[in-house]
Design a protein around this nucleic acid. Sequence first.
DNA 1: TTTTGAAATGTTATAATATCACACTTGTGA
DNA 2: TCACAAGTGTGATATTATAACATTTCAAAA
Lengths: 150, 150
Amino acid sequence: MTDDSQMPSLTTAQNDAMHVAEALCSDRGERLTPARRRVLELLLQAEGPIKAYDLLELLKPGPGAAKPPTVYRALDFLMELGLAHKIEALNAYVSCAHCHDSGGAEIFICTQCDGVEERHGASHSSCAPDGFTIQRSVVEHFGVCARCAA
Amino acid sequence: MTDDSQMPSLTTAQNDAMHVAEALCSDRGERLTPARRRVLELLLQAEGPIKAYDLLELLKPGPGAAKPPTVYRALDFLMELGLAHKIEALNAYVSCAHCHDSGGAEIFICTQCDGVEERHGASHSSCAPDGFTIQRSVVEHFGVCARCAA
DNA sequence: TTTTGAAATGTTATAATATCACACTTGTGA
DNA sequence: TCACAAGTGTGATATTATAACATTTCAAAA
Ligand SMILES: [Zn+2]
Ligand SMILES: [Zn+2]
Ligand SMILES: [Zn+2]
Ligand SMILES: [Zn+2]
C-alpha cells in the first residue's frame, strides 16, 4: 500500500501527474498542502475545463466544506507553478500536463466534447506591432477536435 | 455646424469612426440607436480598455441613468458588428478601428500605458492538434509597447 | 392613416465570479 | 520555548453578467 491510498480513484496517468506535482513543489520549496492537492486531484479528474464554484461543490463532501477563497488560493498556487491554467474566455480552469514554466501555452478547446489540448512554443512576436515586447499571452482556440469531427 | 453637434468632444478620428459605424449599420440593416451610439462614443473616447461598469458610471450623468443590461446589450451589439471587442483576460472592452468581420483579431495590450493595438490575419491553424478545426480564437498579448519601452 | 409585430429598452432582481479583511492555525527555525 | 512566516477559516463584500417580464419605439403592412 502506497501513501497515495487516501486518494479516490485516480487513474495511473493522474497518479503520475500528482507525483510530478509533488516533485515540482519539492524542487521549488513549496508545499503541496491538502487543499492544494485536493484541488489538483479534482482538476485532473475533470473531463474538461471546470469552474471554480464547481470545484467548490465537489469539495463540499470532504471534511471541511471549502469556501471560495480556499479554491481560488489553491488555483492561484497551481497556476503559479504551471500545474493549472485559467481559460479566460470560459472563466474555467484546467490542469496542465506539460509542467512548463509560465508562458507560451496555446489552448485548443473542443466545443462539442469539452476536450482541451495544449500546444507550446509558437511564437507570436512576428505579428506584434513594431517594438512591442510580449510578456504574457492568452491564446485560446475554440473549435471541433478530430474525434468529434469524424 | 454638423449634425454631430450633440456629441461631446470627439476627435476627428473618433468622428470618422462613428461615421464608419453608421455606414456599417446601414449596410447591415441594423440601427445605431442612442444607447448603442453613446456606448460606442465612450469606447472611442476611452484611452484604453474600459470595463462595463465604468461605462455604466459614465452613462449616469446622461438623461436616462443606464442599468447593466443596457450596457451589456449595447456591447453585445457592437461586438456582433465587429465594432468592439472584449478583452477576456481583463473583462474589459475596446472599440475596434478595423471593422473586420468577426474572427481573427489579435490584440496587444501595453501594461504600462493601457494602449491597445490590433493585428489581423495571423493563422494559428498550423499549431493546432491534428484534425482540429478552429472556429473562434482569443489571442491577447500583454507587454510593453514601443513608446513605453523608449 | 391606422394597425401591428418585431426590435429595442426599462426595470427589478438575481446569478456567477472573485477578492478583502482579519482571526486563527501550523509548521519551521532561532 | 519562542517568534515568525506561510497557510487556512470565515464572513462579508466587490465585481461581472444575465434572467425575466413589462413597456416603448419604429417601420412596414393593411
Ligand atoms: Zn500548460
Ligand atoms: Zn471534441
Ligand atoms: Zn477588431
Ligand atoms: Zn505603452
